[in-house]
């Protein structure tokens, strides 16, 4: 049951976005998120919505999956929207005592909810089309300049790779230990929160012990295979900007031009 959790929710495929250089994707996603939060009127917001939607379609990942990813966030969306409705400024449309709803508040609520939804969709586009390994790889390369400042970039990336490798293993092991403890009469499903947390201790301790044992083995295996830090290390996969990367960058440049035009020329719809 626990093993169902997939980290990063990678969705293997062969779409154009899957083949795009992960570095390009990370940069564009960050850039796109900035745009989402600076869109000030309906036209620029509409353009951002359109572009996000385009990205989702190009990824060839079923839209159902995107919507599914939205579910856990739905509460936050509704919550912030409701708060925003009541915190608007200007002439009240309706008023009960100190509670008032203004036109500006409604607009604010609308913008905020659209932005959060877009934020989730955009980051899903990245995680759905990029494997965790590609992500680590890209992050390592993007942060490479920091190693000049003695930031241990390679070591962090290696730790992330190993962590990703061992997540499914440890989940599986947790499952096994839980079954083993249940077979010995441990009760994990009843009682209050405190009792349930206590019931987890006999699961966590063996898990930790085994994790340390694994770490010792892994260190032996890595050293046996001549691992000696990032110095003088090469990579099998070399990231190179290809045709589709240039194409996507071009599309984004066009999008940016249109966005700036709409956002600056037209008056903002919401007050900040």
């Amino acid at each position: 049951m626990i093993a169902d959790i997939t980290l990063g929710q990678f969705f293997p495929g062969h779409s154009m976005l899957h083949k795009t250089d992960p570095r390009v994707k990370i940069c564009l996603i960050i850039f796109h998120i900035v745009l989402i939060f600076t869109a000030g009127n309906f036209f620029s917001l509409g353009l951002v919505v359109l572009f996000t939607f385009l990205g989702m379609c190009v990824s060839k990942v079923p839209l159902k999956l995107y919507v599914k990813g939205l579910k856990p966030i739905l509460f936050i969306v509704v919550f912030t929207a409701v708060l925003n409705i009541f915190y608007g400024t200007g002439e009240p449309l309706v008023q009960w005592g100190w509670l008032k709803i203004t036109g500006n508040g409604i607009l604010n609520a609308l913008f905020v909810s659209v932005r959060i939804v877009l934020l989730i969709f955009t980051s899903s586009v990245l995680t759905f089309t990029t494997s965790p390994n590609q992500l680590t790889d890209a992050i390592e390369r993007l942060l490479k300049p920091l190693s000049k400042l003695h930031v241990p970039v390679h070591e962090f990336a290696m730790m992330m790779t190993i962590a990703l490798r061992f997540v499914p293993l440890l989940l599986e092991e947790t499952d096994k230990i839980m079954s083993a403890q249940k077979a010995r009469g441990a009760d994990m499903e009843s009682g209050g929160i405190l009792q349930r947390i206590k019931a987890l201790i006999p699961v966590l301790i063996p898990l930790f012990v085994s994790a340390f044992r694994r770490a010792y083995d892994l260190a032996t295996a890595m050293e046996s295979r001549c691992y000696h830090g990032g110095e003088g290390r090469t990579k099998m996969r070399v990231l190179k900007l290809g045709k589709q990367d240039v194409f996507i960058l071009g599309a984004v440049a066009l999008f940016l031009g249109a966005f700036l035009l709409l956002n600056l020329w037209l008056p903002p719809a919401i007050l900040r």
Partner: peptide
Amino acid sequence: DNQLVAGIVEE
């Protein structure tokens, strides 16, 4: 299990 480092066989 303990001696494989990366999350993909070829890596």
